[in-house]
Amino acid sequence: MENIISIFVKSIFVDNMIFAFFLGMCSYIAVSKNVKTAMGLGMAVIFVQLVTLPINYLLNTYLLTPGSLAWVSPELAGMDLSFLSFIIFIAVIASIVQILEMVIEKVAPALYNQLGIFLPLIAVNCAIMGGSLFMQEREYANLGEATAFALGSGIGWCLAIAGIAAIREKLSYSNVPTPLRGVGITFILTGLMGIAFMSFMGIKL
C-alpha cells in the first residue's frame, strides 16, 4: 500500500510527464491558451490514461514479456514477443480512444461536448503512449501499482497544462518581445515551472 501511494505521489510531482519528460508537449502547447479548454483536455488525458494503461499492463504481463506465455501452455514459455509491444500498445490506445468516443457520445452527450473534441487528439498524445512504455520499462509489480501510476501521471499532466494555461491567460496582458510571443515564451515558462517542480525530487515517501 505504501508503495502504491509513493508511486502515485511521485508520478504527479517528481516524474511529472511534462516537466521531467516533456511528454504530450504538442497538445500542451496548442491547447493551453485558456484554462477551461486546458482542463477539458487534462481531464480527457487522465481518463484515457486510466483506461489504457492497466489494459496495456495486463497485455504486457500476460503476452509480451519474455516467458510470459507460460500460462497458455508450458511449451510457449520460451517465446519472446516483446518486439511487438510498440504496435500493440498503440493499437490498444487508438482503439480505446475510438470506442470511448462512441460510448461517451451515446451515454453522456454533455460530457461528450466537453471532452469529445479532445479525444481524437489524445490517440497521438505522447503522454499516453509514454505512460505505457514507462510502465513496461519500470516493471511495476502489480496491477495496483500500474493503476496508481496511470492516475498519478494523468493528474500530473492535467496539473501542468492547467498551470501553464493560467499563466498564459495573465500573460496576454504583458509586453513580451514580439518574436518570443506565443510558443517561445511558453517554452521558457515551462522550463521555469520545471525547475520549480524539481524541488520535489528530494522527497521520499
Partner: peptide, 26 residues
C-alpha cells in the same frame, strides 16, 4: 549543472525560437 537537467532543454528551445523568429520575421 542546470544545463543537464530537463528544464534547460525547454529554455534553450525557447531561446532558439526567439532567435529564429526575429531572423525570419514570422
Amino acid at each position: 549543472g542546470l544545463m543537464i537537467l530537463p528544464p534547460a532543454a525547454l529554455i534553450v528551445v525557447g531561446l532558439i525560437i526567439w532567435v529564429q523568429r526575429s531572423f525570419y520575421k514570422v
